[in-house]
Design a protein around this nucleic acid. Structure first.
Length: 937
RNA sequence: GGCCCCGUAGUUCAAUUGGAUAGAAUGGCAGAUUCAGGUUCUGUUGGUUGAAGGUUCGAGUCCUUUCGGGGUCACCA
């Protein structure tokens, strides 16, 4: 029987399905291992060869761990809410659930063909009410908790309430919305213009229900707030910061503008420090941890109050360099700063208002487009250096952001490049206070040097000066050392249809959450997937969108990251109708041991999931502080495009090597018309009507195409579909080839040519187990030492490679092994059965089939991974290369266990040595056991 | 512009972490099989490890400089 992969693969895929081979249950007799893939959004385009790369790697690892005796949790599901299905619904009226269901079925079919060992009984879909019930459930918990900074964890809002009732909020240290009392003071005059957010028990008890709720809202971990948000008019919704890049939406690339809106937020900033600290405890790629670290953006510094001249006001600024305070030659307020109107004298107010109006009209995108453009205006006001009372002019400029720190800075042009550029532009003085640079050339930003011109901190180095300055600031009561984070609270509502409804209703304009018993709150049908005439979100179209008692329900829906934040926990106990997941399940499965996915989620999903997990950890539900112990980013598979060269103004195409002799333009050609960079000119003519009469200038009788590595994309005609490859070569070859392409973490171009080599290897492997007539044959003779050596070298290498996720090198190890066994004409059961187990994670169908032919009735997945035995590799002699002055001159066979001193003697005694010593005494002899001998003359 | 990663046969990757004459696969070439192409088999050709210095008995591996490629962030005080 020929190696018939189509039959074999179908047969075993059916077997695994029917026998539930990969069904997993809690088994306390075995150690657990949790391998997770980032679940996909099922798009209409199906999988291309880039998608399964990570899945194949994780599948190999899962199968390997099972062979090693672990109970492996390896689930798969779908991140089913997403814009494409909804955009399609808007265009066609097809309910997104229908589109999604269809795409899910297609994904499943494609994945099944690759032979994955997922436990499909655990499949989850984020749009399934049985699933999103728990997303809503978690939201209710977030709403009903506040973050106690003293305790360093989330606590029930009821505990806060009882503190307020008994002693007000003087002693509460909580994560709150910065300056929340400003908004409240404006909104509700009852709090008075002087309201600073402090209240006593008596105050609290005198507040109305609405006032109390308004205050509590600023403490909740899920809260509603009026804030500047990213509004995307094209998509008709707001977006979170990570969903916006350079002023455009990441999905769809539509313009985004800033807008003041009332939205739901998650108070992820409460966890900023813990999210940062946790990065040190997890085994993640450096680049990813760096990205998160930067996104969280912790900076230590000080807030310092500068009295405004001729005023009661004190300007609060944030700086990380309090040591440079004597070099501060001007102050800068963000255009939105509340002081701007208050301090600007009448003489300057017109200029200032004009400037603010200009900057307000500039969108973020415009600002980003010309970051180099310096603008600002002098307010005419001054403030005083709190140490020596020197007056400092106050400016307004949009390079200072309202949302970071206090929205105001002390500018130190000598030691901050932005301040430097600004000072140069407006001809403001520059005073050096840290030695080490040349401030006539540029600012000296380094935290390295000795303080000068700085009164009490003169002569100190920067580090000590910062400490000394903060100490003095504290003593004088003019500020305090503080920590700032760049991380912002996550905007959690979307004005879209296709997402989880909020379990929230409104009573007298105050939001309340539903009872758990009312969950899931199911997504209602609507007559169109568009906003209402009045501009309300699509859910406002739903009939009877209110509670039993008639209160209106929230019409926003949750964002994409809501459902993906806790899915790994639900996989542990996916069909539990009573709980998110059982205590027993989470105690056994703990957290994810290996998580594989793309790094585009660095500042989105991966930070939200960590936050979500930490919150559930505070509730005592998650048992680990971090959700994903080890994480690997698989590289992207790039497309390899083929190019042809058309002569200007003609339908003649010139071969790659000759193109420079002609004036030509470059054109992409469908890679299916090209093999080995040689164009099939017949097919090319049929490709498009306008090419039917194409002529060619050939090189050596053939048309050679150029090639380029770029994104895999339809428009570049370089998309490779896995189904066709599997049809052609089989899933086992496809799996091995995807791994063979290169290191998992690296991005690499797809090159279909190489797959032939792997296919040949697979057939060669098959022939090891068959005779020339293709009859199965294995001998029961005892293996010879040479055969055992090959096997055990392979066991060792393959195991080491899998453990460090170096799948590509494992594949080439198999190739070497098969070549060597082929040379030895090995057909011994004692060798080849072990080899089957080794390769089973990589080529599961092939190995199941051969395993069965070997006479086994059980699936090979129940076998044990062969144990490496060093004894078979031990050689009793070693052929030492002997070098003189680093140059290898001859080799010498010596006993492997010979001590160094005797090796020295033996080498010097050797007849060849005399020639190279030339009668001189060796200066030094280096002996590295079982490696090398080097004689220095 | 800041930070991070990578440069090894034509191509994609190895090289036991500082130890032999840098190895595989693929490609190329030649031969056998075939009416021919494909397949299969056999043999063979590919390298100044991007460049220049340095450390060392010994460098692809460590250090410095430089060139090239990729990623990421980008007014965050």
């Amino acid at each position: 029987m020929e190696y018939n992969f189509q039959e074999i693969e179908k047969k075993w895929q059916r077997y695994w399905l029917e026998n539930k081979t990969f069904h997993t249950e809690i088994d306390n007799s075995k150690p657990k291992f949790y391998v997770l893939d980032m679940f996909p959004y099922p798009s209409g385009a199906g999988l291309h060869v880039g998608h399964p790369l990570g899945y194949i790697a994780s599948d190999i690892f899962s199968r390997y761990k099972r062979l090693k005796g672990f109970n492996v949790l390896h689930p798969m599901g779908y991140d089913a809410y997403g814009l494409p299905a909804e955009q399609y619904a808007i265009q066609t009226g097809t309910h997104p659930a229908i589109t999604t269901e269809k795409n899910v079925a297609r994904y499943r079919e494609q994945m099944d063909k690759i032979g994955f060992s997922f436990d499909w009984d655990r499949e989850v879909k984020t749009c399934d009410p049985a699933y999103y019930k728990w997303t809503q459930w978690t939201f209710i918990r977030l709403y009903n908790h506040w973050y106690d900074l003293q305790a360093g964890k989330a606590r029930p809002i009821t505990s806060l309430l009882s503190i307020f009732i008994s002693s007000g909020n003087a002693d509460v240290r909580a994560a709150v919305t910065p300056n929340w009392f400003h908004e409240l003071g404006k909104k509700d005059s009852a709090f008075g213009p002087g309201f600073k957010g402090m209240f006593t028990a008596a105050d609290w008890n005198s507040y109305s229900e609405k006032q109390q709720q308004d205050i509590l809202m600023n403490y909740r971990l899920a809260y509603i707030s009026e804030a500047m948000v990213n509004w995307c008019p094209e998509l008709g919704t707001v977006l979170a910061n990570d969903e916006v890049a350079n002023g455009y939406s990441v999905r769809g690339n539509h313009p985004v503008e800033r807008r003041m809106m009332r939205q739901w937020f998650l108070r992820i900033t409460a966890y900023a420090q813990r999210l940062l600290d946790g990065l040190g405890k997890i085994d993640w790629p450096d680049s990813l941890r760096e990205q998160q670290k930067y996104w969280i953006g912790r900076s230590e510094g000080a807030e310092i109050l500068f009295p405004v001249k001729d005023s009661e006001l004190k300007l609060n600024i944030f700086t990380t360099r309090p040591d440079t305070i004597f070099g501060s030659t001007f102050m800068v307020l963000s255009p939105e700063h509340e002081f701007v109107e208050k301090i600007t004298p009448a003489s300057h107010i017109e200029d200032v208002r004009k400037y603010i109006k200009e900057t307000a009209n500039r969108s973020d995108r415009e600002r980003m487009a010309d970051v180099k453009k310096i603008s600002g205006v002098f307010t005419g006001a001054y403030c005083l250096n709190p140490f020596n009372g020197k007056p400092i002019p106050i400016w307004v400029a949009d390079y200072v952001l309202a949302g970071y720190g206090t929205g105001a800075i002390m500018a130190v042009p000598a030691h901050d490049s932005r301040d430097y550029d600004f000072a140069k532009h407006f001809k403001l003085p520059i005073i050096e206070v840290v030695s080490g640079g040349d401030i006539s050339e540029s600012s000296y930003d380094a935290k390295d040097g000795i303080l000068v011109n700085s009164e009490f901190i003169d002569g100190l180095n920067v580090k000590d000066a910062i400490k000394a300055a903060i100490k003095r600031v504290n003593e004088m009561g003019i500020g305090k050392g503080t920590v700032n984070f760049r991380l912002r609270d996550a905007i959690f509502s979307r004005q879209r249809y296709w997402g989880e409804p909020f379990p929230v209703y409104f009573k007298d304009g105050i939001p309340y959450v539903l009872d758990d018993t009312d969950l899931p709150l199911e997504l209602p049908p609507v007559d169109a997937y568009l906003p209402t005439e009045a501009g309300e979100p699509p859910l406002a179209r739903a009939k009877n969108w209110k509670t039993k008692d008639g209160y209106p329900l929230e019409t926003n829906t949750m964002p994409g990251f809501a459902g993906s934040s806790g899915y790994y926990l639900r996989y542990m106990d996916p069909r539990n109708p009573n709980e998110y997941f059982s205590k027993e399940a989470v105690n056994y499965w703990q957290n994810v041991d290996l998580y594989i996915g793309g790094d585009e989620h660095a500042t989105g999903h991966l930070i939200y999931a960590r936050f979500w997990n930490k919150f559930l950890f505070d509730l005592g539900m998650a048992v680990c502080d971090e959700p994903f112990k080890k994480l690997v980013n698989q590289g992207k598979i790039q497309g390899r495009s083929n190019l042809v060269y058309r002569l200007k103004g003609s339908n003649t195409f010139v071969s790659h090597g000759l193109k420079d002799q002609y004036e030509h333009s470059v054109m992409h050609v469908d890679v299916s018309l090209v093999s080995n960079d040689i164009l099939d000119t017949q097919e090319f003519r049929k490709w498009r009507p306008d090419l039917a009469d194409a002529t060619f200038i050939l090189d050596d009788g053939q048309y050679f195409c150029g090639h380029a590595v770029e994104k895999m994309s339809k428009s570049l005609y370089n998309v490779i579909n896995p189904d066709e490859l599997i049809e052609h070569y089989g899933a086992d070859t496809f799996r091995m080839y995807e791994m063979f392409l290169g290191p998992l973490e690296q991005s690499k171009p797809w090159d279909t040519n190489g797959i032939e080599g792997v296919f040949r290897f697979i057939r060669k492997f098959w022939r090891l187990y068959h005779d020339d007539e293709n009859r199965f044959r294995l001998s029961d003779e005892a293996p010879e030492a040479a055969e055992l050596r090959v096997l055990h070298r392979t066991i060792k290498k393959v195991q080491e490679d899998i453990e460090r996720l170096s799948f590509n090198t494992a594949v080439s190890t198999f190739m070497i092994c098969v070549n060597e066994l082929g040379e030895l004409k090995c057909s011994k059961r004692g060798i080849l059965e072990n080899l089957l187990i080794l390769i089973a994670p990589y080529a599961p169908h092939l190995s199941e089939e051969l395993w069965q032919q070997c006479g086994h009735n059980e699936s090979i997945t129940t076998a044990s991974f062969p144990v490496f035995n060093e004894a078979y590799l031990v050689e009793n002699s070693f052929n030492y290369p002997v070098s003189f002055n680093g140059k290898m001159r001859f080799t010498m066979e010596l006993p492997a266990d010979m001590p160094s001193a005797e090796i020295e003697k033996a080498v010097l005694a050797a007849s060849e040595s005399a020639k190279w010593l030339e009668g001189k005494t060796p200066k030094k002899i280096i002996v590295v056991n079982k490696k090398i001998v080097n004689v220095v003359v």
